[in-house]
Design a protein around this nucleic acid. Structure first.
Lengths: 228, 228
DNA sequence: TCTATACGAGACTTGCCAGTTTCGGATATG
DNA sequence: CATATCCGAAACTGGCAAGTCTCGTATAGA
């Protein structure tokens, strides 16, 4: 749900009811810019440090315009986070290299890293709010964490299907290793989530946990996961 | 008593020339109670939600008394976090079972779990502040995260020394798996860090990453079977 | 015992920010 | 062209909390 305005909106959205309408209709074309601005400010200052004036200034919109669309700051943030899902999980464009390690390594690209760091900063900014709003907690998890875990889950499942990985391994836990460790590194240790870190995580933790590498039981001889 | 009040203290009292001083001396005996109260409120409400009145009420102290000792809310919290280190890492009382798995499992006790959850909640409450205060970030890391990682690091090093684990494994990363995954589970997923979770982490991730086999542990099927 | 000082309680001051209202100007619709 | 409505800007309101100050009481030291 993108628009939360209730009463006046419902009548507005429906093209029917011509009645006697004059003047301008509400312009929703700039909503995405406002939501983007909200996300930016959120990532930079956190929920409590963020003010509506900051968002308005960055979006070059009036404060009143924001309140005409979202009834409160919390609703604005919730909508902004919920609207983030779009734009990245093209299941078509995911790599499929034939090995688990190949798939995981293929995900390490500047674009992905940058996007991931941004999402983690947003999550950091939401922390204060998350504990008091289950709704927001769910939205944040779905938009910021779950997509990354889902990719890992898919890679693992494909590896299991092709016999590269034992079906006994704990897919759920392993799929969450990347987001959890990345969040820890960026938000708590305040160090960059770079390619070197991700590679050592893949070769040192994820593949061993999946039963590959370190000279463990290989169901197939696909693996070249060595070195490091 | 605590050596940390020094800044506020020296400047505040203004004496240094005792000469003819009468009356009462500042009573520092209740400082720990105030710091404890601050930590409690912090864990419950987060830095931004916490008010000095809450701390004063919980410690049954006057608001002015708090400001007589710490010049600002941020200083109070910083001192409170810094003073937490005491009271748990008796290196004598750590288990030494002779196997890595034995040591790790021996750390799973209600006391440890409770303490760990408390620390993680405090860390969650500090998130907003951490990004703007490197000083606090360091103190929080040293008091809340590092002790747990240090225990894992010690267990791993002992396992390496006795030849149970290859010296090639990435000790640093593996030692941080427990705090990182526990923080993720408690603060982001909002699920309890219980014995079942820790066991599956040990058997499904830590031991494999340390190069100890997958088919060995008597972990039965505890791995999955959870949903949400 | 006497006195200076710290104490708890709480009133007070100040500044910030969520949310509201006002206003002049722009614009789609009629 | 007329007009109802939206827009951005900015003034305004109200509440909350950081930090200060006052007061009556308690107590350690001379």
């Amino acid at each position: 749900m993108t628009q939360l305005d209730s009463t006046a909106e419902a009548a507005d959205v429906t093209p029917a009811a011509p009645a006697v309408k004059l003047g301008r209709r509400r312009d929703h074309s700039r909503d995405p810019e406002i939501l983007d601005a909200a996300i930016d400010v959120l990532a930079e200052t956190g929920f409590d440090g963020m003010t509506i004036d900051m968002v308005a200034a960055r979006a070059k919109a009036g404060k009143a315009t924001i309140y005409r669309r979202w009834p409160s700051k919390a609703d604005l943030v919730l909508d902004a986070v919920a609207c983030m899902k779009a734009g990245e999980l093209d299941p078509e464009r995911l790599p499929d290299t034939g090995t688990l390690r190949g798939d995981l390594v293929a995900m390490i690209r500047p674009r992905s890293i940058e996007e991931g760091e941004r999402k983690l900063r947003i999550m950091g900014g939401l922390f204060g709010m998350i504990s008091s709003s289950p709704e927001l907690a769910d939205a944040a998890h779905a938009a910021l964490i779950e997509p990354r875990a889902a990719v890992n889950r898919l890679f693992l499942q494909r590896a299991i299907d092709r016999g590269e990985v034992s079906p006994d391994c704990d897919v759920e836990t392993i799929a969450k290793l990347t987001p959890a460790m990345a969040a820890f590194r960026l938000l708590i240790e305040k160090r960059p989530v770079d390619a070197e870190f991700l590679l050592s995580l893949i070769d040192g933790v994820i593949l061993p946990a999946a039963g590959i590498g370190h000279g463990a039981p290989p169901a197939t001889q696909a693996g070249q996961a060595r070195s490091r």
